[in-house]
Amino acid sequence: MSTRKFSIFRYNPNTPEVKPFMQEYTIEEPPGMTIFVALNKIREELDPTLMFDFVCRAAICGSCAMVINGKPRLACKTLTGDLKGTVTLMPLPVFKLIGDLSVDTGTWFRHLSVKTKSWIHSSKEFDPNAIEDRMDNETALEIYEAERCIECGCCIAGCVTANIREDFLGAAGINRVARFMVDPRDERSKKEYFEVIGSDEGAFGCMGLMACDDNCPMQLPLQMQLSFVRRKMVSFGLSAK
């Protein structure tokens, strides 16, 4: 069986006296090995201290994003066979480092939801005995298209703006607002949306470099969503008093 060399970023903020360094490991590489399989193997056989995150291991939960050979990717769905040479693994930038490859995306994304007020704003009371409000199936599909974001952070890590501006909500944030804007159940006014995202923290902070569009593992149409929101924000901003 062939072998594969990994070069992995190591640093634990709890032991700051040990400076960050790259550590190398070599393991056997069976066909069809994913980075998920590889990292677990390294932890179980070579180095039980290695920190990284996986949950679903099926590209659904968004836990395992890391920088793999220079690109932010989901580790669970990256086959080592698709990579050339030594596999270099770095934690995602922007997010707070927990240790080695593990970063705190949870806190960041909760902040995003709070900032963009990511919930249905409705004045209706729930009536358990009434039938549901109708919705066009096309609309439902359109909402789902934006809702598919798994909060993995790849779009944020690859984004220059997010790297220099701490408060920038990134493609995930702008896409999130798009999700609510197309939802007829959300009663927010133009002005309210504008307040949420009509600034450099949101739509106007984006410089259109589209690293996000290249990196989204869910292949969300981010360029489309970003420009949709930007145009809406201009019209909301110019029309709202």
Binding site: V67, N69, G70, K71, P72, M90, P93, A157, G158, V160, N163, I164, M207, L209, M210, A211, D214, N215
Partner: peptide, 26 residues
């Protein structure tokens, strides 16, 4: 434009670490 040296450093590191052509364009 990143005005602070700190920010400029981040960008350089970022551009070097993450291979996005559009980042270099910027």
């Amino acid at each position: 434009l990143p005005t602070r040296y700190q920010e400029q450093k981040i960008i350089w590191r970022h551009a070097k670490m993450l291979k996005g052509t559009d980042t270099w364009v910027w």
